[in-house]
Nucleic acid binder design. Structure first.
Lengths: 277, 277
DNA sequence: GTTCCGCATGAATCGATAG
DNA sequence: ACTATCGATTCATGCGGAA
């Protein structure tokens, strides 16, 4: 298929291991996805065993690399589970595998889930964060940092209400380090750049999908890594959040989902332009 | 050396690869440390190259495992640096290596550095988090969760005073999550258990040490994983923060540091009982 | 319109019990 | 011994209806 002929703004029903092969080379600006976690979601992709997880992902990773444009990005949201008191290592193995396949591990963003799943155990606290790996094909990739700047107002407001020790220490070190002066430069500024920690609550509204990530998560990465008209791909679309957000931001989208019930749900959500149906 | 004869509350000057051998088996309740990062701190331990990092750490990891009590814990604060636009994989390799050596990877806590150093790069935001790996020798290890409870969120103020009807009626969740509620456990509650995300500011002190972590970090883990009179070890003591905190919490400490100037600084801080000198 | 209040829900984890 | 299922534990958020 020629790139120029490629259809966009569509949801494809099927196994991404097959569907991806039908896409042309270098046709996607951003991949944002959250694959089924090991040993979970038993009915789609057969509930991949942790020991086979990264091997299962290899052909997918290769296809994703092929369809991504040279200056594009691949955002992978994942978190290993605890089992018998230990964290699984399949996610770490996956990073090493992706690197061997030629992906560059650019960054690891932390999604801090403020409303994480409740529960209590003798030697474990609640898991309230997930990994968002950022992989690229090249050192130089597209990044529009200004698109995700955050108002300094919120930050400053929080600081005023809840000052921390180092705020005062910084003032003391004003004369010596110059750091204090830099902080002074921030005063009066309207917007600042964010960090690599994202504070987003999980989705609690019922979208009939057990693993939907919040719209703010793909939104942040789509704004950061694409501009209007760019193509966003999610090979594990689920209930369609990535496509929905891409559409609302005037990006083109391609979504692939293996379960027909989720395909229908995603199409319904896209039609209504509503997160919740 | 017999365990009973072991001296505590001391700082040992020297290379931990040698010093650790002089400690008896099963003599330490908690190890908290932040080792020299790969390719950094060039003057201590010779600036370990990323490719040799986990191999360099193997003999240390084995000694640490030997001196740790069966139900003790090992907290490893570390974060890979970016090099040529990529995150290094030596930390991931280290986790896999430690597992091969028999350590159990119990948990990965995120230290969210609320006031990370300002800065801007074309392809990268400020790095505002670090990993705190929790390794143990056994599935059952000592953990005193109540010691680190935090105030309950603002949302609960009303609920605590005015429990709602459903708190008493609804004991089972309607969904498939299998989650029910027992609100009698909540009534009058002022504190909740924390999560595996720690929100601590970085501390800018005049302490002349490149990797000084804030006292709050070892404090949290010492409270969580030891009780009074227990022995805390830091094989890369640096400016002595771990020892200082252990002392202030009535724990015994053993610190090992290779650079004599840091040994002197740590001793000075311990003598004065002050974080900042 | 706002704010308040009721309330459902969640990519969890572990130990015990059953097959 | 090894897997499968079940019950118990727990907290912050958004939504929708009411005030």
């Amino acid at each position: 298929m020629k790139k120029s002929n490629m259809k966009t703004n569509l949801i494809i029903s099927g196994d991404c291991r097959e569907i991806l092969k039908t896409l042309p080379d270098d046709c996607v600006d951003l991949i944002v996805t959250s694959p089924p976690y090991a040993d979970k979601r038993n009915h789609s992709y057969g509930g991949i065993h942790p020991d086979h997880y990264f091997a299962w992902f290899i052909p997918i990773a290769l296809e994703l690399k092929r369809v991504l444009k040279p200056r594009g990005s691949f955002i992978l949201n994942i978190k290993e589970h605890a089992n018998d008191g230990e964290r699984g290592i399949y996610v770490l193995e996956m990073v090493l595998t992706l690197k061997k396949l030629g992906w560059r591990w650019t960054e690891e963003y932390i999604w801090h889930k403020k409303n994480s799943f409740p529960g209590k155990w003798p030697n474990r606290f609640r898991d309230s964060w997930e990994r968002c790996y950022h992989f690229t094909k090249q050192k130089n990739f597209k990044m529009y940092q200004k698109a995700v700047m955050v108002p300094i107002g919120k930050w400053a407001e929080k600081r005023l209400n809840n000052p921390i020790k180092s705020d005062f220490i910084r003032l003391e070190s004003n004369s010596e380090s110059g750091l204090g002066r830099k902080v002074q430069n921030w005063v009066g500024r309207k917007k600042v750049y964010p960090t690599n920690v994202l504070h987003l609550p999980t989705v609690v509204t019922n979208v009939n999908h057990s693993a939907a990530f919040p719209p703010d998560l793909p939104e942040w990465f789509i704004k950061l890594l694409t501009k209007k008209g760019d193509v966003v791909l999610d090979p594990f679309l689920g209930s369609g959040t990535t496509a929905l957000v891409a559409k609302s931001l005037a990006r083109k989208y391609i979504g692939i989902e293996i379960k027909s019930q989720y395909v229908r749900l995603a199409e319904k959500r896209l039609k209504s332009n509503k997160v919740k149906i």
